[in-house]
Amino acid sequence: MTVLPKDIPGDSLKVTVGTANGKPGDTVTVPVTFADVAKMKNVGTCNFYLGYDASLLEVVSVDAGPIVKNAAVNFSSSASNGTISFLFLDNTITDELITADGVFANIKFKLKSVTAKTTTPVTFKDGGAFGDGTMSKIASVTKTNGSVTIDP
C-alpha cells in the first residue's frame, strides 16, 4: 500500500482569532474563523484551546458560528481559569461536516476595569488537533492569535 501526501505544500487550514475593542463593562464579541476549508477536504472534527487573561476578560458565552451545522449536538465549549476549550465533531461522520469558510465560534467577553488603554492577547495554547471530512488528521493548520483592547 502506498500512502501519498494529501496536502499540497503551502496549503493549510487557517484558524484565526479576531479582535475587538471596548470600554470597561462593555461586552464584545471576538470571532474565531476558519478559511481554506474546502482545500483541506472539509473539517469533520477539531479540538483546540485559547488562552486569555482572566483578570482583564470575563467569558460571558461561547457560541457556535454559522458554519457549524447542528451545533447543539456537534459543538461544545467550556471556559475557566483563562482557557477556553473548543470541540467539534460531526456526529453523523459525513452529513454535518464544516464545508465552508466563515465564523466557527463567537466568544463574548465582558471587559474588566483598567486604568490605561490595554491590549490583551487571545492566543492559541498547545494541544488539540483538526481532522478532515474523512477524519484524517489535517497536518497543516495555520493559527493566528487575536486580541481585545480595553480603553477606559
Rank of each mutant, 00 (worst) to 15 (best):
K6L: 13
K6I: 14
D7L: 12
D7E: 14
I8A: 08
D11I: 12
S12D: 12
L13I: 09
K14V: 09
V17I: 10
V17R: 00
T19W: 14
A20G: 09
K23Y: 13
K23D: 12
P24I: 13
P24Q: 12
G25V: 13
T27G: 08
T27H: 12
V28C: 08
P31G: 11
F34E: 03
D36H: 11
V37T: 10
K39G: 13
K39P: 10
M40S: 10
K41L: 13
N42I: 10
F48W: 07
Y49K: 00
Y49I: 01
G51S: 10
Y52C: 10
Y52R: 08
A54K: 08
S55I: 13
S55E: 11
S55Y: 12
V59R: 09
V60W: 12
D63I: 13
A64N: 11
A64Y: 14
G65D: 10
G65Y: 08
G65F: 13
I67S: 11
N70A: 08
A71W: 04
A72R: 14
V73D: 12
N74I: 01
F75K: 02
F75A: 00
S76R: 02
N81G: 15
N81F: 15
G82K: 15
T83V: 15
T83M: 06
I84W: 05
F86N: 05
L87W: 03
L87S: 13
F88V: 01
L89D: 00
L89S: 01
N91K: 06
N91D: 15
T94M: 01
T94K: 05
D95H: 03
L97K: 02
D101E: 06
D101R: 05
V103D: 06
N106I: 04
F109C: 03
F109V: 05
K110H: 03
L111R: 03
K112L: 03
V114R: 12
K117M: 06
K117W: 01
T120I: 11
T120Q: 03
P121S: 08
V122K: 00
T123P: 07
F124M: 01
F124G: 01
K125F: 03
G127C: 04
G128I: 00
A129C: 01
A129R: 01
F130S: 02
G131N: 00
G131H: 01
G133T: 02
K137P: 01
A139G: 07
V141F: 02
N145F: 07
N145V: 05
V148K: 00
V148S: 07
D151M: 15
